[in-house]
Amino acid sequence: MPIIIDHLTYSYGDAGADEKKALDDISLTIPDGQFVGIIGHTGSGKSTLMQHLNGLLKATSGHIYFDGQDIYDKDYKLKELRSRVGLVFQYPEHQLFEIDVFSDVCFGPKNLGLSKADAEYRAFNALRSVGMPEELYYQSPFDLSGGQKRRVAIAGVLAMEPKVLILDEPTAGLDPKGRDEILGLIKSLQTQKNMTILLVSHSMEDVAEYVDRILVMDAGRIKMDGTPREVFHRYRELEEMGLAAPQVTYIMQGLLEKGYEVDGDCTTVAEAADEIMKLFRRG
């Protein structure tokens, strides 16, 4: 079932002069199994929007429908929502607290009221899907490397078996290898488990490479909504918002300006390489 966001507004501060709208009249439909990238500079409302989707923040006005139900209905169970919409915060490794990796991953499913056996089964599955080697299951999470910690934290959310996974800059502070691993893992969750993924990111390259659809946020509003090609085609507008297109798009635009016949809207290195090879073959 899709997620439908209907005229969502969230303001904070006192009503009147101090009032600030972190989200301003947002309407949006996210179909099942889509990989959505959300970009916007700091303070554009990305994280605020994400926190609404699993009920951590309650909108000032507007509605969110999940599985056809309004999550602001009085008898709607937020706990159920949180089991279906997994939210991975920025630097999720900061939430680890248990004595060993395995118990930490069990925390989520246990909170859902599952039996010990069920919770452990889910924890095993989650740890396997993030590719943690088994010999680390019973080590303290604080002894792991940065990338491993992050994978444990993501497993902690996956163990709740959500249908929708929201990640707030999951690659911040990781080295290129760790970054590719995490993004590859996220992509495989979409393709293999048909999960809906929402990825907040500052890296245009990452977004261009992996997502099906990009939402551009600025000052609490959605300014653009489309495929990476459509969005990055408007890179001049993005620059005005303090964002940019992937570097490779600039290279292709540069070639275009110099009079080479290439597709200026390439967003990934692979696409651009193909285009340039075509150019060479044509002579």
Partner: peptide, 16 residues
């Protein structure tokens, strides 16, 4: 701020 963040992260994992 940190407390608020961790609290939210754990609530997202079903903590009450």
């Amino acid at each position: 701020e940190e407390t608020d963040k961790i609290m939210k992260a754990q609530m997202a994992r079903g903590a009450d």
